[in-house]
């Protein structure tokens, strides 16, 4: 068997990532989370008389709690690898990245493990979010007053 033949064979047996399927799953999962989230937010507005903005903050906290809890129980890694961006882009992804990195490094101790690596994955969101928010808000004040 020569090189080219071998390459062909490898290509044939490598499992293909089905991009179309991934995209549909991401759409349905992300949409489903938003749909359920909206139900919860509207429920809180009606039942507890919350303002709209307040209900979204509570919703965010609830989402973070559920995602962190499921991550700690060990279910969530599996879900994330199946649903891709459907779970990564919502706040669930943020909570998942924090909890999973915290779980991974806790064996290294409270300071050198948890303290040093707590924000390993979520750190980039915080860093670039804060930078962008800072400079855009200055730009916003300059332009809009």
């Amino acid at each position: 068997m020569d090189k080219d033949e071998y390459k062909k064979l490898v290509k044939e047996y490598t499992p293909k990532e089905n991009k179309m399927r991934n995209a549909i799953i991401a759409f349905l999962v992300g949409g489903g989370i938003s749909f359920v989230g909206q139900l919860v937010a509207s429920f809180m507005q009606v039942t507890f008389g919350m303002e709209i903005a307040e209900s979204y903050v509570w919703l965010c906290i609830l989402t973070i709690f559920v995602a962190s809890f499921l991550t700690a129980l060990g279910f969530f890694d599996n879900f994330v690898s199946k649903c891709g961006c459907g779970l990564i882009i919502p706040t669930t992804g943020f909570a998942h990245s924090m909890t999973s990195s915290a779980l991974d490094v806790k064996k290294d101790g409270l300071i050198t493990g948890l303290g040093a690596s707590f924000f390993k994955l979520a750190g980039s969101v915080l860093l670039y979010g804060i930078l962008a928010g800072f400079f855009f808000s200055i730009l916003g004040v300059i332009i809009y007053g």
Partner: peptide, 25 residues
């Protein structure tokens, strides 16, 4: 809207070499 935002993310994830960390940032 939620589905659409996640769909865009997934398309970027699948068609480029960016990692989930890049995409959330």
């Amino acid at each position: 809207l939620g589905g659409f935002i996640c769909l865009i993310g997934e398309l970027i994830l699948d068609n480029t070499k960016l990692t989930p960390g890049h995409i959330t940032s």
